Amino acid sequence: MYRFLSPLICFMTPLVLQAAVFKCISPAGQHSYQDQPCPADHAAHTLRGGNFSLVTREPYQLRELQDSRQQTAKQARAMQQEQAKALQLRRRQHVQQDKHCRRLQARQQTLQRQLSLSRSPLQTQRLQSRLASLANDLHDAACPP
């Protein structure tokens, strides 16, 4: 039985390998695909190649769409992380500025107390000069009055 089966397969293999698909376009513009040559009044395109599939590109397009959405989501997360870092940095700078202002204001109060207790004109003049310089520092640091 195998003796008859193997020649049969050998004879049928070239028939399968020679298969071609004909794309026929009718005069009305309708497309049809067939395994025989097109009629004379139809425009013909012979499609050669190995495997023809009825699968459309929709799964690939869906995958590309999903990939682009994932990229967009990654970019959005990266932007959110950058914004969070920037906000954290601004908060840290604000806290440091508040500390600096409190130190300057505490120094100003100390100098004002010393000025009220000063007895010599020279010491009063020096304290007033330091207070004026400190007032400039407070203004430069944009501390609230």
Rank of each mutant, 00 (worst) to 15 (best):
M1T: 13
Y2E: 14
R3W: 04
L5N: 02
P7Q: 04
P7V: 01
F11N: 03
V16T: 10
F22W: 01
F22S: 02
K23R: 13
Q30G: 04
Q30A: 07
H31W: 04
Q34R: 07
A44C: 05
T46G: 01
T46K: 03
L47Y: 01
G49L: 00
N51C: 13
F52T: 07
V55R: 15
R57I: 07
E58L: 05
Y60T: 09
Y60P: 01
Q61F: 07
E64Y: 06
L65H: 13
Q66N: 05
Q66T: 03
Q66S: 07
R69D: 10
Q71N: 04
A73D: 14
A76N: 08
M79T: 14
H94P: 01
R103S: 15
R103H: 13
R107S: 11
Q109P: 06
L111W: 00
Q112F: 00
R113G: 15
L117N: 13
S118E: 04
R119K: 09
R119C: 07
S120L: 01
L122E: 15
Q123I: 05
L127A: 02
Q128P: 04
Q128G: 00
L131C: 05
L134G: 06
D137K: 15
L138R: 09
D140T: 15
A142E: 14
A142R: 15
A142K: 15
